[in-house]
């Protein structure tokens, strides 16, 4: 199996802060891979190390088998690290031309790419006049226009309105399908990751806390939501398996086959059950559960 990005024992410290803490992660080539984590989890640091912007304190990072940050590996990579910035005196067309020259890419069709990201009408406007969404779209064109085999997108919808997020999400999906590149996507938008990614890794405090297929991570903890009274009696009966979910509801972390017996027991105990519904665990709740646990573990 070939890997697009490998990190082995990767550690990066800034003074007393450990941005990455002995991180080991292997991102397979092909498809769209999501990297999740709260602010300060180490996502951007991982990408900055991969792109040679930052040197690790210890450990090794590799891009497609070559040492990260080396010119040989970077030629095959396109990256958008955090909010894209551009020299303010350049237009979008000039920016892509300058980047093409810098990459030694002679045969790129700049007009085609400006059209693909919906910037044809603003191609000759200086990027300093662009909105956040337009800058993100230009950033995507800058990532993909040299046709890389690996694209790293760090928070590609950061700071955008819902319509803009939807637009960029569609664009990423389309480019992933049409260009066939491996895409590594870091995002706070869990819905975005669920819709776009095949596999995800969750980072917290610079460590890998979970990694696996989106469906596996998202669906691993279904729960029975009971709206009942008195709630205290339900919690008492469930013990460690119960948790409050609002003023009059309890989440029961039980297996599906245990539900009938639980409901029978509650009714026999005199509890009034107003509603009982399975809540399918989604990526968001799985993500929050994993972060709350804060114990590094593999979900593979």
């Amino acid at each position: 199996m070939s890997f697009a990005l490998e990190a082995e024992g990767l550690t990066k410290t800034y003074g007393a802060v450990r941005a990455l803490d002995d991180l080991t992660l292997k991102i397979p080539a092909g498809g769209v891979f999501g990297v999740l984590g709260p602010n300060g989890a180490g996502k951007s640091t991982l990408f900055r190390i991969a792109m040679g912007l930052v040197r690790p304190t210890s450990g090794v990072a590799r891009l497609s088998g070559s040492p990260a940050g080396h010119a040989s590996s970077l030629r095959q990579v396109g990256a958008m690290i955090e909010t894209p910035r551009y020299p303010p005196y350049l237009t979008a067309r000039d920016t892509l031309k300058m980047l093409a020259l810098q990459s030694g890419a002679r045969d790129v069709d700049i007009d085609l790419w400006l059209d693909r990201v919906g910037l044809s009408g603003a191609a000759d406007r200086k990027t300093s006049t662009y909105s956040v969404g337009m800058k993100q779209r230009l950033g995507l064109a800058a990532v993909f226009f040299t046709r890389p085999t690996l694209a790293i997108l760090d928070e590609p919808t950061s700071g955008m309105d819902p319509a803009g997020i939807q637009e960029i999400r569609e664009l990423i999906r389309r480019l992933a399908a049409e260009e066939g590149a491996t895409i590594i996507l870091a995002s706070h938008q869990l819905d975005e990751v669920r819709r776009v990614c095949d596999r995800v890794a969750i980072l917290a405090k610079g460590k890998l806390v979970a990694e696996g297929q989106v469906e596996t991570l998202a669906g691993r903890k279904p729960a029975l939501r009971l709206v009942a009274s008195p709630v205290a009696q339900v919690l008492e009966l469930l013990g460690d398996q119960g948790a409050l979910d609002g003023p009059d509801a309890v989440l029961a972390q039980i297996e599906r086959h245990e539900a009938p017996a639980l409901i029978r027991a509650l009714v026999n105990a005199g509890v009034d059950i107003h509603e009982a519904r399975w809540r399918e665990a989604d990526l968001e709740s799985a993500y929050l559960d994993i972060l709350q646990a804060k114990e590094p573990a593999s979900a593979r």
Partner: peptide, 14 residues
């Protein structure tokens, strides 16, 4: 000043 090294460093050696 423009925070544009991130745009350039992935495309050529430092």
């Amino acid at each position: 000043r423009w925070e544009t090294w991130r745009l350039l460093t992935p495309r050529n050696g430092r």
